[in-house]
Write a protein that binds this DNA or RNA. Structure first.
Length: 483
RNA sequence: AGCGAGGUAGGGUAGACUGGAGUGCCCGCCGGGCUCAUAACCCGGAGAUCGGUGGUUCAAAUCCACCUCUCGCUACCA
């Protein structure tokens, strides 16, 4: 049985879940559900990234211990994903013992391979924020967060010999042209790696809230190094062989592409693992033309939208509004338009009118598959398999539209006898196939349609017109128009 | 500044690698049809000098050069 392992980034616990998190996790969920539909042995991982100075500071602001703080916030992510109908197989937290164990062991492997050495890190430090700031991010030589003076500071650190992996990384990129997806992003990384890699400072003597560094317990492991290892620790490693490794796909935002496309593969090579098969870089949602930010007060809470519309309306919107890898604009108006036009009018109304006619006729549902010609199943599969979910939805919608047209053309309301039975047969079978195709995207709606048809939700191989051995019963509309 | 991506009807996009009538899709707009259906469904129409200039070619949205505008990244906060 083919295996499929998909991950989301683990989310950093310095705030509540927002639309950006929801997007990443939905993309991963759709892929996971698609592979389960195909019958693959699928593992879908998400979780939370809980160490680091920022988390500790946030906790302090709220008058909590770091552990209390992360317990609360992590739970809010768990709940949110439940509400979004996310089907993850595991939820990893970097403060869990199983993770700490994995990090310690991973670091040891890197060390045994001669890739860790002691050194000094020198950089710009903002004392009030207790953090180093990359030179390029300074604003007029001041801290971009608080605007205060920064000073040059040296501290002891242990380095990872990232520079050693420059050639092997470049080789990996050229041998695996689909490692970074969409492909157009590859050049960005390749050019930067060609410019030369500096070794990575991978421990912090000043940060307490973290995993102690195996070879000097006064240091903690740099949060990124800590966080990336979650993809392995969740698989039960090092206690058991990580059977799903290498991951088929890491879903990441473009802001963390560097860590996943450069640092993580290098770490893996150092510890003796294969790099992941691909890294899917998604775009960012901007809200009403602006970046989402707290100061603008436009941080969108996905859960409110679920309440106002429906889980599936939101899931559909997220997947349909922006092609993978591009930025998309989020606004409630756009969500509303898609809900009303594509979900209520195209899909919801199709199922509703078909079942109304079927119920009225009360007769047989037998005929020849005519409408099946419009079903581009192969195209759909290819699109899903190359992670082009945006195109795949277009393909499904072409079939939905073809089905609506079929009904208009055959005019079942004017027919009777065999002709009526035939038209209804095709219409009902179309609805059944559609329920399967949309199930990775809109699991709840897929279930609703199946229930109205009176059968369990089908598998991928059931996407063919066949004899009807079920009795459809009209239910309530799938989607309600919102004004 | 360097590296990267992009500028296609009112808005959003596909097409570009492998040149061949501006060909397609979604929203909006205008007109028509239908009445099974959630003011839903179906058909037709208007609307684009394909960012600009120059070049290659029988032929350029597509290839090349230059220009211009927009956006992203430039690694140790995540």
């Amino acid at each position: 049985m083919p295996r499929f392992y998909v991950t989301t980034p683990i989310f950093y616990l310095n705030g509540k879940p927002h639309i950006g998190h929801a997007y990443a996790v939905t993309v991963a969920d759709v892929l996971a559900r698609w592979h389960r539909l195909k019958g693959d042995d699928t593992f879908f991982l998400t979780g939370t990234d809980e160490h680091g100075e920022k988390v500790a500071k946030k906790a302090q602001e709220n008058g909590l211990s770091p552990q209390e703080h992360v317990d609360q916030l992590s739970e809010s992510f768990r709940k949110a994903w439940k509400k979004l109908n996310i089907s993850n197989n595991d939820f990893i937290r970097t403060t869990e013992l199983r993770h700490e164990k994995a990090v310690r062991h991973f670091v040891k492997l890197m060390h045994d391979n001669g890739d860790i050495y002691e050194g000094v890190y020198e950089g710009w430090y903002c004392t009030p924020d207790e953090t180093f700031i990359p030179e390029s991010q300074l604003i007029d030589g001041k801290c971009p967060e608080c605007g205060r003076e920064v000073k040059k500071l040296k501290e002891e650190t242990y380095y990872f010999r990232l520079s050693r992996y420059q050639d092997r990384l470049l080789e990996y990129y050229s041998e695996n042209p689909d490692f970074i997806l969409p492909r157009k992003r590859t050049l960005e990384i390749v050019n930067r790696v060609k410019e030369g890699l500096k070794d990575l400072s991978m421990t912090r003597p000043s940060v307490k809230w973290g995993i102690p560094f195996t070879f000097n317990e006064k240091h903690t492991v740099y949060v990124w190094v800590d966080a990336l290892i979650n993809y392995l620790s969740a698989l039960g490693w090092p206690d058991s062989e990580p059977k799903y490794w290498p991951a088929d796909i890491h879903i990441v935002g473009k802001d963390i592409m560097w860590f996943h496309a450069v640092i993580w593969p290098a770490m893996l090579m150092s510890a003796g693992f294969k790099p992941p098969k691909s890294v899917l870089v998604t775009g960012h949602y901007i809200v009403e033309g602006r970046k989402m930010s707290k100061s603008l007060g436009n941080v969108t809470d996905p859960l409110e939208l679920v309440d106002k519309y429906s889980v599936d309306a939101l899931r559909y919107f997220l997947m349909r509004e922006m092609p993978l890898g591009d930025d998309g604009d989020f606004s409630e108006q756009l969500l509303k338009a898609r809900n009303n036009n594509e979900l209520a009018s195209d899909l919801g109304n199709l199922v509703y009118r078909v079942l109304t006619m079927t119920e009225k006729s009360g007769g047989k549902l037998e005929g020849r598959p005519e409408l099946e010609k419009s079903l581009e199943l192969k195209t759909f599969q290819e699109e899903m398999d190359r992670y082009d979910t945006y195109k795949a939805l277009e393909t499904v919608w072409r079939f939905i539209k073809a089905s609506n047209k079929y009904i208009n053309d055959t005019k079942p309301w004017e027919l009777e006898g065999e002709a009526l039975s035939n038209a209804l047969y095709n219409s009902v079978e179309a609805c059944r196939v559609i329920s399967i195709l949309i199930s990775p995207f809109m699991p709840e709606t897929a279930e609703k349609i199946s229930k109205q048809l009176g059968i369990p939700l089908g598998r991928l191989e059931d996407c063919r017109f066949s004899k009807i051995g079920y009795l459809p019963k009209k239910g309530s509309p799938l989607f309600i128009r919102v004004d």
